[in-house]
Amino acid sequence: MEVVYELKSVCKAFDKHVVYQDMSLVISAGETLTVIGGSGMGKSVCLKLMLGLLHAESGAVLFKGDEVSALDYHGQRELRRRVAMVFQGGALFDSMTIMENVGYALREHTSMSDSEIAERAWECLEMVGLGADRAILTRMPASLSGGMRKRVAIARSIAVRPEVIFYDEPTTGLDPSNIRRIDEMIRKLQRELGVTSVVVTHDMPTAFSVSDRIAMLYDRKFPFVGTPEDFKHHAVTEVRNFVQGRISDGAQR
């Protein structure tokens, strides 16, 4: 299977706080990989490294063989057209309508007209289950519920038809029915659009529901990578404890 992302011996630190030490990970095309681990261990940092929003102190982050941190301005723009990210809180732009939010990347990367952008935004909102009322296009993010904001954020991420989507804690703070809806959506987008997905979460039901593979962040690297079934019956105590919720975070030795 084609490798989309390859992280090789990555080291990343914020001042004296070392987040990654000699970390490696491979992500294949079309799969949904879920990154699990305790709060504050650097799961989101991994996504930001892959998107070029942060840079590693050493090691390599390769997207289809190209070093992400070595990309020039145009290379970075192209990367971010092909790779989208759904942020933890949605990160919708407060001052813009839902249509402007969803169409933002289209304005940046294409020469589509306003009506074409509105049509594409509408399509994306329909895909994420917000197609009941066209009035949503002119609403502001502040008028939406948490679950709806997350779904708009997903709609924004798929507007330019990316090859890879990163989800940063997509179900945090949502009620169970919305969690299930988001989980189903991640699966549906993988099925219908064929995107590669990387989901960062510490919510195990979500991890088991959406993943082809799971990678657990422990001791500043990913020593445990396997299928959901592997993780349900893992031989290593630390993994079992995390999966079964016996401890809330892994060791940072």
Partner: peptide, 8 residues
């Protein structure tokens, strides 16, 4: 970060 991630 969202602006940057959308290619702007």
């Amino acid at each position: 970060d969202a602006i940057a991630s959308l290619g702007a």
